[in-house]
Design a protein around this nucleic acid. Structure first.
Lengths: 144, 144
DNA sequence: ATATAATCTATAATATTACTCGAAAAAATA
DNA sequence: TATTTTTTCGAGTAATATTATAGATTATAT
């Protein structure tokens, strides 16, 4: 299951993606509109900032804004920051590989391959979908 | 991430799948060969039994054996028993659907669709892969 | 100076996962 | 029938991860 952290991250990025031409938006504003616990959101935005997705500015008139085009922010990158690996088992992970605790001999593991396939299928979708896509869908759904 | 519960379940089913023509195998035997905490495995096997995958017999000479052909036991069914939903968000689940806590209005949610796609892709692979497939892969890998 | 707003470090609350305990029920066998 | 074997059952606990909160600090604008 996706953590709340990741959902909040996506929501925050969507809000900021809709706010592209405006001055930076404050944590409290984002927290309010999306009903995210403020202090929790604070941590999440910090992570996204440290990963280079957000620009932040302290002090009066400060806040957060996207550091890149919403078209170039893909779900897969967000999820890796907030939840870590995409794969369902560590030994099938590309970016967070490590041996499974329970696995005695990886070379003869019949399970791994399946989850490599699952990872690839998941990865394909998540690395094709951007914040811009989500915004587009939302606005389409609202107008219908 | 896949829980240990699910991994243990798969491993146990694989062991039992290799034991098809023999008399039932005891929990302690399975636990030993796969290095699974016995009491934990006990619970897992009970779940699998209640779901109809295993036959069990009490008393001396008793134990567990598969109730169906390993070809007909698919990863997706096991995972639903041990971990629940396949989807990454509850609102994208087929068998365990419910609304997301954080979701104010599902009808205009731009995130849901993506995870329905991910679910479908995952589901396809997991419902095509059986215990027999895993056994086959293992034996192939060993012989190489 | 003062107000604003992000940053940092720590910690509390809650939920989930992993595992354990002990006793009861069923079956075989001697 | 007594004994041993093995599953079944209900409950409980320990470990870990997730979610959330608190308070002080730093940067910036006016």
């Amino acid at each position: 299951m996706l953590s709340k952290k990741t959902k909040y991250a996506i929501k925050a990025l969507v809000v900021l993606g809709k706010n592209m031409d405006q001055p930076p938006m404050q944590i409290s504003k984002i927290a309010e509109t999306e009903r995210i616990p403020k202090k929790f959101l604070e941590q999440i935005l910090l992570d996204l900032r440290n990963a280079g997705f957000l620009y932040s500015k302290k002090g009066a008139g400060g806040g957060y804004s996207l550091n890149r085009d919403p078209k170039d922010i893909f779900l897969v990158s967000i999820m890796r920051i907030t939840d870590g690996p995409i794969a369902m088992i560590p030994c099938a992970s590309l970016n967070f590989y490590h041996k499974c605790d329970e696995c005695h001999q990886e070379s003869t593991c019949g399970i791994r391959d399946v989850f490599v396939d699952v990872r690839d299928a998941t990865l394909k979708i998540l690395s094709e979908t951007s914040i811009a896509d989500i915004i587009k869908r939302e606005t389409t759904l609202i107008s219908v």
